[in-house]
Structure formats: structure tokens, C-alpha cells
Design a binder for these strands. Structure first.
Length: 720
DNA sequence: TGGTCGCCAATTTTT
DNA sequence: TTGGCGACCA
């Protein structure tokens, strides 16, 4: 059993993958440990220099020891942002601030864990004492809302819906309202949830959000407004909160005239990482928490804001000095990560931005090779090129885990995954399909939720449809019979409720029901999950052809439950907020001796770094995505996304432009199917990438590379 | 005829 | 994996 830094077991991830069927020798996915340059700095700082503050540069030191009042730390990529924040927590603690009175909000739980661990190492707090309250906005919100559940009119063990569950609830209402069959196409569940979530997180009227981001839905505005009202009512009725509700409820607590001041007084210091990615709702929470007490530290880089599609906006960090007029601002500009040529290229890209805090990253590593811009014949040539370079670098002594392949979408690496498998190069991938999104995992979770709450219609709906010959209509009929039963024991009405089932499905259904019944008195999550998994297994086997791999995934969940000390409700709740196999949870080196290449989406690579970085598929329409071509803001965000990708590299940076692509029929105005190099690769950047290699070989596939170069010249026009 | 099931196409990024 | 469409079953 592998554990994370908190000692919790980690599930090693999916064994199912869309490409799996074609590649039998695919390596098991494991989580790599991120490369931490600052970690090394600190190890020496702690062991060799007791006054660890001396290892910081003057700006970092000023930030770490800032006394009193709001502080904005603008930390460019690779400038020791995490180092500084850790040092600040350590400094506060060494100054006598009680750790429990420090709140540390980070973007991922991994970041929180790492920081707390580093901090402990710095000031030698005994393990267990450093109870800094740390985590994501959502997980901290969960804690507060649970604490004040009754004040909020919630049952003590309210459930938390993940995004998939929320979409299912919306879909159910959508059907009840009769939108499923209406002739005018109605937005589907994921669009609706997206729209709802954006509206809530941005704290702006629905009409505005629709007009701005979903103009094609405008005709349905009133209907959708009614649907969303029904959605919130339904959540109340079901006694559940979705992820957005956690924030909404936290804000309600923070602004409450009784609880708000208490909550504010409970924390001497609030520190927030990645402030460029907060949304309007989160800002309101922060302002409520620091209305009177003003000790607040926020750290971020407006040029690395890449979550606009989740209602985050770099405007919030830009406006921090307005919200907190007495704020001090410290800018970190010494980059310790990348070589000068890489930094110069990234700076050239940043210079194209329309709005940003001025920053001039200075580089400590002068020497280094130029970034490479590589034109490839097509996406499979791109895959081959990447493999060649990766192996070449390994020959020269660079471990695979020191290299990473980053892409705009997780799907960009499909061909590469096949090629890596063919060449037997081990790799791990994160981003992409996540553990909790796999159908069979959702099946088991639905059953677990039923064990906890027999009134959970969504879960009933899902579980019933696992039975052979049972679809939405039959499931609905059974459900109606169950729901009419008294709240306390819905299972009591099972003998009647099972009537609508086809005869051959009744036996298997009974087996599941008795498992639910048998485990009712079991307190610990482990035995319950195991028993329920056993009951579900036959249905999984009957339903999915590749059941062995899927059952293996479920076994991981059982193993995790066995290690869990709490009850089932707790276990499921934590699973939703801290899902395994998410990029947020890359903890603990699983096998020190293993070496593997890292594949990741750029979003998931945030905060990480590697010696060599390969960025795939930089052609117009993909990166920047055509979905983002609509507004200046979203194109700016695409640019920042590329900036984030480029600044992950320490020594080598490779950018790939496949010239011809196959998977995007009628996607653009280009009927010939040639990719145009990304609109971000203007001449300015290209000149800095002085090694331009073409990799075309004689081929039946056709067009010679010069066509691509011609297109390159015309890229600038796309900015207009 | 209502309902299930099989087949095909398409899919941005995630707490 | 989801959604849409058409075939087939009670």
C-alpha cells in the first residue's frame, strides 16, 4: 500500500484507458513525485545554516518576514514562490503565532501538504503540532460548513456532490421539465452545469454570463433560470451540497454577523497561494475573513492565470491593492529555474500580453541551449520526434522522470502514448480521465451512497440501471415505489418496489438489496465497502467486457476504505474533495528505482518543473483552441497557458508544430488539412527559437514541408 | 408501442 | 464516456 504524506493510502489509478485495449504492455500508472528545486535549497538551508532566512534573496526575505497588514507577493514563474510562502509560515510560527491560528489556502491539497511538511522541517515543529489549517478553498469550506451544519439548516452528515453527480441531478430535472424531447435543442447537462457553476462562482447575473460566454443559449434564458431554481431546491430536498455550494455556504458563514467575527478572530494570519486563480466568490470570502483583522498574504502571478473558464480572473490579483489599500506589494523577479534562452523566449511571449503587472524576470542561469521549434509532418511524426529526443536525452544521462510532455488537451498525447508503448518507454499520465469518472467506480460509489442514504434518488437510478433489461423507464418506476415508502426505511418497501423489474433481474437485485441491509450496522468504512463491492461484482462482470481490470480498480477503492479510520459517509465525502489519481494528489515516491516519462496537461502541470519539457500540438485551432478564439480575454488566457508550459522547463524546451493533422475533419477554413503554427509563435518568439528543424521525410503522405514555412509567415495576421 | 440495447461519432482545460 | 438513432423485443 502506497501512502501519501499524511499517511493516507493512495489508489494507484486506473487500469482502464481508451487506448488500453490496443496496447497490452501499457505500464501501470503511478504517480510521480514532483521535482522540487526549492526542496534542495531548503535541505541545505536547514542542515548547514540555522538561520535559514539567510538563504533567501532580499525580496523573498522581505516577503517572508513582512510584519502586519495585507501583503501581495507577485512571484514570476520559478522565482521561489513556494519557498517564500513556506518561509513565511515558518517565520510566523517562530515569531510565536500559534499554528492553529494560521489559515493556508492553496490550489491543491498536494501543495498544502508539501508546504506544511516543509514548514515543519524548517522550524522543527514536532509532528502533529503543526496544525495549520490548510487545504483548498473547497476542502476548508467543507470543514467549516460541517462544523456549522445545523446553523445552516443542514443535516449533520450532508452529502457532497461531485461534478458528475451534480450534472446527473440537473439532467433529472431537465427531463422532468420535459426539455429532453423538445424540438428546439436545449443545452445538455454538462453545458447547464457549466453555466450554473460559472454564474455562481463569478457572482454575476445569469443573463450576463449567458450573453458573454454562452450566447447560443440566450433563447432559453428564462427556462434555464427556472431549471436552476429547481436545481437548488432539489439539492435542499436531497440534503446535499455541490462544490459551488460549499463556497456559497462558507461565504454565508463568513458574512454572518455572529459567526463571521468568530471565524475572523480564529485566525491571526490568512495566506493564499495561486491568488491569480481565485474567482469572485472566493474573493468575497477572503474579504469577509479579513474585514477587521488585516493580516493577509496572497501570492501569485497574474501571468499564470489559466482558470478563466472556471470563473477565475486575474483581475482579482490586479485589483488586490484596491481592495486592500494599505497593502504592501513585493515582486519576485529572480528566476532560479530556467536558463536564459528559455526565459527570454517566455518573456517574449509575455510581452504580447495586453495587460499585466510589470515583471522582468532575471535569470540566474546564463548558459543553456536555445529552445527548439520543431515542425513535423503530422502528429505521428511528432510522436516519433518526441520519443527520439527523450531517448537521446536519456542516453546523455537525463532520467526519464526529469522530462515531461505537456499538451493543451489530454487527448493530444494519444498517438504518443501508442508510440511510447511500442518502444517500451515507461510513462505516467495525469490529467485526462480521472478515477472517479470511470463508469464502474461511479457505480460502486453510487451504491456506497445508497448504503448511507436510502433516499438518494440519483444513486438508485444509476444502480438499478446496472441490472440487465432495466433502463431509465423501469428504474423510474421502481424508484417511485421506493420513494413513497417512509423516510426511515425505504428498503422495507422493496418487496413491492421490485415488481416492475423483469423476472430475470429480480434475483441479482435482491442480492444487492440484502447487502445494503446487512451492512447497515457496520460503522467502519472498510468492511462495508468490501461487502458492497462483493454484491456489485456480478453486475459489473455482466455489464462490462473488460471486467477484470475494472474489478481491480474497485479493489483499490476497497483497500483505501480499509485504511480509512472513519465511517462510510466520511470516506465518501473525502473521496469527492480529494479524489485519488487527480493531479492534485501526486504524493510520495511510489518506487524510487522506477523511471518514467511524465505526460500531463498543462493545467495539471502547474507548479511543477522538469529538466526538459516538450510541448505538443502548437497549431492554430488546437493551441490556441478554436473554442477560445471568441474573445480577447480567452486568447490572452491561451497565451498564458503556453507561458506556463514554457516556464516549466529548466534546461531544455521543445515546441512541436505538426503541420498536417488527421483527427479534425472540417474543423477549420483550411480544406487541405494543414495545421497553421500557433498564433502565439510570432516572429519574435520564433527568432528566439533559433534551431528550427524540419523533420519531413519522403512520404506517401504528401505535401512537402515548405508549405508549412509559408504558412508560418502569415501567422501574425491571425492576431487581428 | 414503449422500452432496451447496440452501434456510431465526438469530446478543452478541473476544485 | 456520452448522446443520438435505428433495430428488435414484450
Amino acid at each position: 500500500m502506497i501512502r501519501n504524506l499524511n499517511g493516507h493510502p493512495i489508489i494507484i489509478g486506473l487500469t482502464i484507458h481508451p487506448l488500453e485495449r490496443r496496447s497490452a504492455t501499457r505500464p501501470e500508472r503511478i504517480r510521480p513525485r514532483p521535482c522540487l528545486a526549492w526542496e534542495r535549497m531548503f535541505v541545505s538551508a536547514v542542515t548547514e545554516a540555522p538561520q535559514w532566512l539567510e538563504s533567501l534573496n532580499p525580496e523573498q526575505c522581505a516577503a517572508a518576514t513582512h510584519a502586519g497588514g495585507p501583503l501581495l507577493v507577485l512571484a514570476g514563474a520559478g522565482t521561489g514562490k513556494t519557498t517564500t510562502l513556506c518561509a513565511r509560515v515558518a517565520w510566523l510560527a517562530s515569531e510565536g503565532v500559534v499554528p492553529e491560528r494560521i489559515m493556508l489556502l492553496t490550489f491543491t491539497r498536494r501543495a498544502a501538504r508539501e508546504m506544511l511538511q516543509r514548514t515543519r522541517a524548517l522550524i522543527q515543529m514536532p509532528v502533529g503540532s503543526g496544525a495549520v489549517l490548510g487545504g483548498t478553498f473547497h476542502s476548508v469550506a467543507h470543514r467549516f460548513v460541517r462544523l456549522h451544519a445545523s446553523a445552516l439548516g443542514l443535516a449533520p452528515g450532508f452529502g457532497v456532490l461531485d461534478a458528475g453527480d451534480a450534472a446527473d441531478v440537473i439532467d433529472m430535472i431537465r427531463e422532468e421539465h420535459g426539455h429532453a424531447q423538445s424540438k428546439a435543442r436545449f443545452p445538455k447537462k454538462s453545458t447547464l452545469l457549466d453555466l450554473y457553476s460559472r454564474t455562481v462562482n463569478a457572482q454575476r447575473p445569469l443573463a450576463d454570463v449567458v450573453t458573454e460566454s454562452f450566447p447560443w443559449c440566450e433563447q432559453h434564458l428564462e427556462t434555464m433560470a427556472a431549471l436552476f431554481k429547481a436545481y437548488t431546491a432539489r439539492k435542499r430536498k436531497l440534503g446535499v451540497l455541490d462544490l459551488d455550494d460549499l463556497l456559497v455556504y462558507w461565504r454565508a458563514l463568513a458574512t454572518d454577523e455572529l459567526i463571521g467575527p468568530q471565524m475572523q478572530d480564529a485566525f491571526d494570519h490568512v495566506l493564499i497561494d495561486e491568488y491569480q486563480d481565485v474567482n469572485g466568490l472566493q474573493v468575497e470570502i477572503v474579504r469577509a475573513l479579513r474585514r477587521e483583522r488585516r493580516d493577509l498574504t496572497v501570492v501569485g502571478d497574474d501571468f499564470q492565470a489559466i482558470y478563466g473558464w472556471r470563473s477565475a480572473s486575474p483581475e482579482h490579483i490586479l485589483q488586490f491593492p484596491t481592495h486592500f489599500p494599505e497593502a504592501s506589494v513585493i515582486t519576485l523577479e529572480h528566476n532560479y529555474r530556467s536558463t536564459q534562452p528559455i526565459l527570454a523566449t517566455a518573456n517574449a511571449l509575455a510581452a504580447q500580453a495586453s495587460r499585466a503587472f510589470p515583471k522582468h524576470l532575471r535569470c540566474e542561469l546564463k548558459a543553456g541551449s536555445q529552445p527548439e521549434l520543431i515542425f513535423c509532418r503530422d502528429e505521428s511524426a511528432q510522436a516519433a520526434e518526441v520519443c527520439d529526443r527523450v531517448l537521446e536525452a536519456r542516453e546523455r544521462g537525463m532520467q526519464l522522470r526529469e522530462q515531461a510532455v505537456l499538451s493543451r488537451t489530454s487527448h493530444d498525447t494519444d498517438l504518443l502514448e501508442l508510440e511510447l508503448t511500442r518502444r517500451r518507454i515507461p510513462f505516467v499520465k495525469y490529467g485526462g480521465l480521472r478515477y472517479l469518472e470511470a463508469a464502474h467506480v461511479k457505480d460502486l460509489i453510487a451504491l456506497l451512497k445508497l448504503a448511507d442514504n436510502q433516499g438518494d434518488e440519483i444513486s438508485w437510478f444509476r444502480v438499478l440501471q446496472l441490472l440487465e433489461g432495466v433502463g431509465p423507464a423501469t428504474a423510474r418506476r421502481v424508484l417511485d415505489l421506493l420513494v413513497t415508502a417512509p423516510q426511515t426505511d425505504r428498503l422495507a418497501s422493496w418487496p413491492t418496489a421490485r415488481e416492475p423489474l423483469p423476472a430475470h433481474a429480480r434475483g441479482p437485485a435482491d442480492a444487492v438489496i440484502s447487502a445494503l441491509r446487512d451492512t447497515r450496522d457496520e460503522r467502519l468504512a472498510g468492511p462495508r465497502v468490501e461487502r458492497l463491492r462483493d454484491a456489485l461484482a456480478p453486475l459489473i462482470e455482466a455489464r462490462y467486457p473488460d471486467c477484470a481490470a475494472r474489478l481491480h480498480d474497485l479493489e483499490q477503492l476497497v483497500a483505501a476504505a480499509r485504511e480509512h479510520s472513519g465511517d462510510l459517509r466520511h470516506f465518501v465525502g473525502e473521496l469527492v474533495l480529494d479524489p485519488p489519481q487527480s493531479s492534485a494528489d501526486l504524493a510520495g515516491p511510489p518506487h524510487r528505482d522506477e523511471d518514467y516519462l511524465v505526460l500531463s496537461t498543462i493545467h495539471s502541470a502547474k507548479g511543477l518543473e522538469w529538466q526538459a519539457v516538450h510541448v505538443l500540438a502548437l497549431y492554430d485551432g488546437n493551441f490556441p483552441a478554436c473554442m477560445s478564439a471568441g474573445s480577447k480575454e480567452s486568447v490572452d488566457e491561451e497565451r498564458r497557458l503556453l507561458y506556463v508550459a514554457m516556464t516549466r522547463a529548466r534546461r531544455q524546451l521543445h515546441l512541436y508544430v505538426p503541420v498536417r493533422y488527421y483527427h479534425r475533419p472540417n474543423g477549420t477554413d483550411d480544406a487541405h488539412g494543414y495545421g497553421k503554427p500557433s498564433r502565439f509563435l510570432t516572429e519574435q518568439v520564433q527568432q528566439l527559437c533559433d534551431v528550427i528543424r524540419s523533420s519531413d521525410q519522403p512520404s506517401h503522405l504528401g505535401p512537402p514541408t515548405p508549405t508549412a514555412r509559408l504558412i508560418t509567415v502569415s501567422v501574425d495576421g491571425l492576431f487581428d
